[in-house]
Nucleic acid binder design. Sequence first.
RNA 1: GGGGGCGUAGCUCAGUUGGUUAGAGUGUCGGCCUGUCACGCCGAAGGUCGCGGGUUCGAGCCCCGUCGCUCCCGCCA
Length: 599
Amino acid sequence: MHAYRTHTCGQLRKSDVGQTVRLSGWVHRRRDHGGLLFIDLRDHYGITQCVIEPDGKAFPTVDTARSEWVLTLTGKVVARTDETVNKDLATGDVEMRIEEATVQSQAQELPLPVFGDMDYPEETRLTYRFLDLRRERLHKNIMLRSNIIRSLRNRMYGQGFNEFQTPILTASSPEGARDFLVPSRRYPGEFYALPQAPQQFKQLIQVAGFDRYFQIAPCFRDEDGRADRSPGEFYQLDVEMSFVTQDDVFAAIEPVLQGVFEEFADGRTVDKAPYPRIAYADAMLQFGSDKPDLRNPIRIADLSAVFARDDVEFKAFKNKTVRGIPAPGAASQPRSFFDKLNDWARSEGAPGLGYVVLEDDGGVLTGKGPIAKFIPSAALTEMARLANVKAGDALFFAADKQDRAATLAGLARTRIGRELDLIEKDRFRFCWVVDYPMYEWNEDEKRIDFSHNPFSMPQYDRKKFLAFSSGDKDEILGLKVFQYDIVCNGYEMLSGAIRNRDPDVMLKAFEIAGYARAETEERFGGMLNAFRYGAPPHGGLAVGLERVVMLLAGEENIREVTMFPLTQQGQDLLMRAPSPASAKQLKELHLKIVYPEKG
RNA sequence: GGGGGCGUAGCUCAGUUGGUUAGAGUGUCGGCCUGUCACGCCGAAGGUCGCGGGUUCGAGCCCCGUCGCUCCCGCCA
């Protein structure tokens, strides 16, 4: 008989009755009845109830066992009587009569119970991650993650993609997030950087003639975390392909994402590809966000023109962008509903959230509420038409400079949708966001910045682009790029672009953003140079792996789908990282530490 | 870097207006119990109330500072 097990703890069935078997696992639960001792033995595969009576040979050993001890138990499989069958357990038709018992490992009193589904503080969970991972919820999530990765890989191979590994020790990239640096021993004062993404490598792979690349790639960014964003490191499904248009990229990834969501939907509805495409500008208007949650039926309308009318005397909204957020059926809400939203808007730094409640007064649409008296009937009717609201609804207003009004309206849309319980449940709704602006105006520094990815191909006339001068600011700010995101339920799932492979256009693009040609050559020389030796048209994308798993696991925090996550403050509480380097290490690396002064 | 929340027994939490010896559940330890599957019953141990200072006759509670976790803003090409 095998030293540890003949079966797993999730394996035994009625058909095994009569066999003598050996199981190994953790003591999930111990129930001592005096004359009878039950041990629920758990491993990766499941739980099996084992039982022994006090006159049993192995009783003294089993009796000492406590929660989470590791035992090897040997005994006969017996059928449970009808009354004692446990339908909640896959092995619940049988139990094992313990004849031999070996303690493989003891466990101290637990800082975190494995049994049960209670919530525990992150600090405890992360310090004792190995215990938390034994618990059903995390164990299930991590297995889901593994299965999703397998599925993604298979689907990518199925589409003719090949997986290649790109370097982890590489060069710092000057754009974007802060880099993690690795000091060089052989070159004093010089550093490797961990890749923020394999962006340049995957483009080089295309120049090198390997079509259709993908990789489950680790990415490192020294930025702070959020619930849906790991600090430090995360994984993405990184994809790049040659001789493709934007539509080709869409056609390649849609079935992969669609397939993986359907495979793990577990009864939830998955929208069918092709996904609707929403221009960035429309997303900002209708959803107040570049991450539209289509499950929320509310659509924002621009009401600036109505408030600009002479017959509308509400001065506070004049010369501002005014966005209207419909609140369907909210006319029946108590005053506190409106007050609460107003308080919330103030907490977001807005002056408030104005509103009118729409009522039907003998066939005429009338407004109620603090600012209703400033809006004459004709204007109200026009607003109702634009915002698609009717008697019985309410209409909220976000008024400010354009970008702030749009953002506030977007937040209000989400909030109102939740308060009124309008968000569809158990459904995954996807959309593409396309036609991103290439540049944006940096008001603080009075200059033009890249608004997203500097490697994207502008939707442009090449000659005109190369001839742009600083006087063409408006036209430059109006430029769009072949860049795209897929958003699912308000989460950014993937982001990609058709790349800029034209060295002259790239130098010009960086020049517009304030980088001298020599500087661009210096920083992106490797890639620029490659583009001078025959670069195929190419494009690709990267899917946030944890986000996909998070959505499919029904979790709202990325740590719930990460095996060993850092805290929000970027610490590993289990392995104790970061930690100081020894004097010897520092000397080898030619480093001296200058601690910040505490004030 | 900034704002909000939390920090009390191994663990999860309660703790009134500042007032006697800081409580419960769970776990741990001991006793009883032959069909439980969150077993049940009895008993015991277990506390620097995150840490430091202050106000007060008196602080878990009020004030100041600080640390940790978390959520958000900044940041994330």
